[in-house]
């Protein structure tokens, strides 16, 4: 064990960092796109079906196939990390978009009505009422998205984007279980950690009603 860590510890740390970087960058992009889009869709429910449907299709494409499909795309295919981040963003988009939309739509209409009647502007209503009331649902979406991203990011190694998947793939190729676990255990821990941390935040933000 210590021998393994001495031999591969530095690499594991580097790849864990790479893995985190891929995931966080993709999550940031997906949030920047998904959150405002979800808010817009909650105002225009007629657009929601086709757009959420599209995000759903993205989600359904198997990850390895999606990487394969994007590889020949000119600008994208040149840089493996760029491609991986974009694909991960695609996966993270649906849970964020869907939960933002559903969270806002599920708010008691009496509350949005009274917010308007109290003289709130659309912006005040969003910031003071709608987002705080749907925060826990939105966070649940971020949680699902993060866990998915951590998982799919291991596959990104297949196209040379790095991350903990690299150890797994290398271990499989050289029939070295230690190497496989050296990638798999940190990847699993990352997912569990993200899930626990976001789950805790979600609980904190849940509004008590009765």
């Amino acid at each position: 064990m210590t021998g393994f860590l001495r031999a591969h510890g530095y690499e594991m740390a580097r790849l864990t960092f790479e893995h985190l970087w891929l995931t966080l960058f993709a999550m940031l992009l997906a949030t920047v796109i998904g959150l405002p889009l979800g808010i817009v869709l909650s105002r225009r429910p007629r657009l929601a079906k086709p757009i959420i449907g599209f995000a759903n299709v993205l989600q359904t494409v198997p990850s390895l196939a999606l990487f394969g499909l994007l590889l020949p795309v000119p600008w994208l295919g040149e840089n493996a990390a760029r491609l991986a981040i974009l694909a991960l963003t695609g996966y993270a988009l649906l849970p964020i978009l869907r939960n933002t939309y559903a969270g806002i739509r599920s708010i008691d209409p009496t509350l949005t009505d009274i917010a308007t009647a109290l003289g709130m502007t659309a912006r005040q209503r969003l910031l003071k009422v709608e987002l705080p009331l749907s925060a826990s649902v939105i966070l649940a979406g971020l949680r699902t998205a993060t866990v998915t991203c951590v998982g799919v990011a291991t596959i990104a190694a297949a196209i040379g984007a790095g991350g903990l998947g690299e150890l797994i793939f290398r271990g499989v190729a050289s029939v070295d279980n230690g190497l496989v676990l050296g990638g798999a255990i940190p990847a699993a821990l990352l997912a569990l950690l993200a899930d626990a941390a976001l789950g805790f935040a979600e609980k904190k933000l849940t509004v008590k009603r009765a």
């Binding site: 917010a115 003289g119 705080p132």
Partner: peptide
Amino acid sequence: TSLRRGIGYVIQETGLFPHMTIERNVGL
């Protein structure tokens, strides 16, 4: 918005915001 701010409105369902304290609700 300014018209509404000058008119008090009370409804049967009260419409209190569950994520705000009573003080914040009243002071909105």
